[in-house]
Design a protein around this nucleic acid. Structure first.
Length: 559
RNA sequence: CGGGGUGUAGCUCAGCCUGGCUAGAGCGCCUGUUUUGGGGACAGGAGGCCGCCGGUUCGAAUCCGGCCACCCCGACCA
């Protein structure tokens, strides 16, 4: 069927909307693909929904190909399920009640519901299973942003694997990894598989797929030699070697009046800021712990949280006074009663540290000799770090997390009693994995990666239409007739065709065609008709090519 | 949740500081004429509770207070 543009709801915008910042947001709005309803809430208009559906179909084919069974769970979920896993405590969970006070949750993902169904799996003979659905997710986000980058409501493909043991889970996990690689490839997104932090709740191993873009929620760290990719939160960059001053037999106090910053300290003492250390007292549970990183590094909260397996907060000024007898800026690891977690970068060498006495620091502080820390990688990697694989330089760029895969283990199956009987008649919890892709974010990533000054450059696989036929009729019946016949011929040949039959001037049609970004464009007008031809061009090319009317199909099938 | 910003026509914005008479521009929209290969021209027209509520004032888009919405930065994001 040929879609006639004169009857299509495709409201394109000539100017950039005021409240769009990200390129993907701007172009999707201007091209008439999406419209905002509220913060983090969008409607997919007809053209946008076509793109969304194409992405969905690609995902469906690839998940089916690894044995996925598509189903559909409800969005309204009894709160009881969420109480049993404890996830009801997550701040982002939307909660509501019905008229008689029964409590419900709008899921952020469907582990609870899927595990609820997995209780019908009773025997090892029924495992493994792989279930998935496309459904709406709701998140009470503190700050939605960037158009489709962070939404409060969105469609997600989430799949869940149910295996009898860890080895089975490994297989399910690897199959998803492969399927995801193929999905992003088919959608025309460049996305890298990276290690990600698994965070505080459940989950042994987690990997993300990061698509590098002009703007995004995450930061992709990559080696200049292309052999290492990671989310910055989990990246293991190698910090540069500090320039140490001469070695000292024992720590020595040095007066540093009024100095409370690393920059000030390094300048006053005339040393490399990498030869200093920075102490951050934090409270986790009811423990006060001292986190210690190199002066030029930042503490990675994700890494520390993963180490604690619990959230933490910075200690208050009062707590610091009481425990150290000094204020922030003069704190150090020597002589303190609490546990000290030191970053790996502090393992070797002598550093300047706070003396726990206002206005004083210690030179020549050496881990192992002067204090006994637990060494953990808690520094946030940064641009310029060395690659952990090849020692090349690491660079950082914004990225969109388009997919995430988790090894959940038995966290949910134990909470919800999803067990099976093995060959020996023993009851065991099902071993689970969960795997998510957001089509909206995938689309945003495609637009971020594939656009020019005039609009989107869709890959054929997910373009709203394959061919955009422009009828520059200027009232000419003959041109209209030819344009229509070209469109119908292409449609009959299996292409998705949009025919611009509107009564608009040529300039407007060209501009809209660029915005919309279909891969192939056929222009029919009086000019070319005079030599029995039409003008064609691929999106991204700067000039038309004249081809005989009769060989349009030959041209389109070149791709 | 902390910080910053913005709400005036469908869209992009001016006017607000320093209150004043009928609230403006460009684009878009409707009618007509003309034009037709990269967002035409002319003529006529429609379209506004100036985010909402309250206050000050003879008089409020403009000043004051409260609220709401949206955007950006940060915090947060199993």
């Amino acid at each position: 069927m040929v879609q006639r543009q004169s009857t299509l709801f495709l409201p394109t915008l000539r100017e950039d909307p005021a409240d769009a910042e990200a390129v993907s947001h701007t172009l999707l709005l201007r091209g008439g693909f999406i419209r905002q309803v509220g913060a983090g809430l969008f409607t997919w208009l007809p053209a946008g929904w076509r793109v969304h559906q194409k992405v969905v179909q690609i995902i469906r084919e690839e998940i089916d190909a690894i044995g996925g069974q598509e189903m559909l769970c409800p969005v309204l979920t009894p709160a009881e399920l969420w109480e049993r896993t404890g996830r009801i405590a997550i701040p982002e969970v939307f909660k509501l009640s019905d008229r008689s006070g029964r409590r419900f949750v709008l899921p952020l993902t469907h582990e609870e519901t899927m595990t609820f169904h997995a209780r019908e799996l009773r025997s090892y003979k029924e495992l493994p299973q792989l279930w998935y659905h496309f459904s709406i997710k709701e998140r009470d986000e503190a700050r939605p942003r960037g158009g489709l980058l962070r939404l409060r409501e969105f469609i997600m493909k989430d799949s869940y694997s149910f295996d009898r043991d860890e080895a089975g889970l490994d297989v399910s996990f690897e199959r998803h990894e492969g399927a995801y690689v193929r999905i992003f490839e088919r959608c025309g997104v460049e996305a890298f598989l990276v290690e990600a932090e698994s965070g505080t709740m459940g989950g042994k191993e987690s990997r993300g797929f990061l698509a590098p873009t002009g703007s995004g929620e995450n930061e992709l760290m990559r080696c200049e030699n292309g052999d290492y990719y990671a989310d910055i939160e989990a990246a293991r960059g190698v910090p540069r070697a500090p320039q140490f001053p001469s070695v000292m037999e024992a720590p020595e106090e040095v007066a540093t009046p009024g100095v409370t910053t690393i920059e000030g300290l390094a300048e006053l003492l005339g040393i490399d800021d990498a030869a200093t250390s920075k102490a951050m007292p934090v409270v986790t549970g009811d423990r006060l712990v001292l986190a210690l990183v190199r002066g030029d590094d930042r503490l990675s909260e994700e890494k520390l949280m993963t180490f604690f397996q619990a959230p933490f907060r910075p200690a208050t000024e009062d707590e610091i006074r009481a425990a150290f007898g000094a204020g922030g800026g003069s704190l150090g690891p020597i002589g303190v009663a609490m546990e000290v977690i030191a970053d790996e970068a502090l393992r070797e060498g002598q550093f300047v540290a706070g003396a726990n006495r206002d206005g004083w620091h210690l030179r020549g502080v050496e881990a192992g000799r002067d204090y006994q820390p637990t060494f953990v990688d808690i520094r946030q990697a940064k641009e310029g770090d060395g690659c952990p694989v090849c020692a090349g330089r690491l660079t950082v760029q914004p990225a969109i997390e388009v997919g995430h895969i988790f090894k959940l283990g038995t966290f949910h199956s134990e909470a919800l009693d999803a067990t099976f009987l093995d060959e020996d008649g023993r009851e065991r919890p099902i071993v689970m994995g969960s795997y998510g892709i957001g089509p909206a974010r995938t689309i945003a990533a495609v637009v971020e990666q594939r656009h020019d000054e005039t609009g989107i450059v869709w890959p054929r696989s997910i373009a709203p239409y394959d061919v955009h036929v422009l009828s520059l009729s200027g009232g000419s019946r003959e041109v209209e007739a030819i344009a229509t016949s070209v469109a119908e011929e292409l449609s009959a040949a299996g292409y998705d065709v949009l025919l611009d039959d509107r009564d608009e001037r040529p300039g407007e049609k060209f501009a809209d065609a660029d915005l919309l970004g279909c891969p192939l464009r056929v222009t029919v007008g009086k000019r070319s008709l005079d030599d029995g031809a039409v003008d064609v061009r691929r999106r991204g090319e700067s000039e038309d090519t004249r081809v005989p009317r009769a060989s349009v199909i030959d041209w389109t099938s070149e791709d």
